[in-house]
Simulated scan of single mutants.
Amino acid sequence: MDPVKLKQALDDVFDRALLHHGFTSYMRDYQLVIHTTADPRSGIAPATMRYLFRCCVQADCKTTVPAETWRESLDDRLITYQTGVDLDGYVWGVEWQPLYPGATIITDSPTARNWAAAVGIDFHEVRIRTNAHDLTLIFSDLQIEELPSEEHGPDHLFPIR
């Protein structure tokens, strides 16, 4: 994948809403499901996009939520928006995270170079940070597609309008 196109694709989701991330059901590729919105006056319709990091040989995920906040956020009522919204702590139940500060391409990644030499195809390293997770992915290609608007159903909670 062309690094310039990769950078543009990652810049396009800066400060958007990450709805889900994880390996696909067949466990080779890693996906981010991202909701994009614009000022309603722009006429640009909201969309749900899937960023598919193909041939993902490494996916590291760690929390960015500080220990003090975790300590205040252990109550299971916080995993549902309706029961957690008025409690102190991190409300896990909002079911999205802002892609902020966003994604960074790790240029000259030794890990990506080692995988490229071992497998025989190009690999890239990307770091993606949100307000709750810090992801590092090693992958060969990125495919982007728009998901049907009903992908998350009419009851999907998305408090940003």
Rank of each mutant, 00 (worst) to 15 (best):
T36F: 00
L99F: 08
S25C: 00
I34P: 09
M1Q: 08
S149W: 01
T48N: 03
C61F: 00
P148D: 15
L6D: 11
A118P: 03
A112C: 05
Q143M: 13
D76C: 03
Q31N: 07
K62D: 05
A59I: 02
Y81V: 05
A118M: 07
T63S: 15
L32W: 12
Q58T: 00
M49C: 09
H156A: 09
I44V: 14
V65P: 06
T80Q: 03
Q58F: 06
A9R: 08
L6I: 15
D88G: 08
D122I: 01
D12Y: 05
I106K: 15
H156Y: 15
H124L: 01
I160S: 08
T69G: 01
C56M: 03
A47Y: 03
L157S: 03
W96A: 04
A132E: 13
Q97D: 13
I34T: 04
E145W: 00
D86L: 06
R54N: 00
R16C: 06
H152M: 15
G89Q: 04
R28T: 10
T83W: 06
V119W: 03
R54M: 05
D141E: 15
I160H: 11
T107F: 07
F139K: 11
H124I: 03
L78D: 02
L135Q: 09
E151P: 01
G89A: 04
E150F: 08
I34C: 12
P101H: 10
A38N: 10
T83L: 10
G43N: 10
V119L: 06
G120L: 08
C61W: 01
Y81D: 01
F14P: 01
R161Y: 09
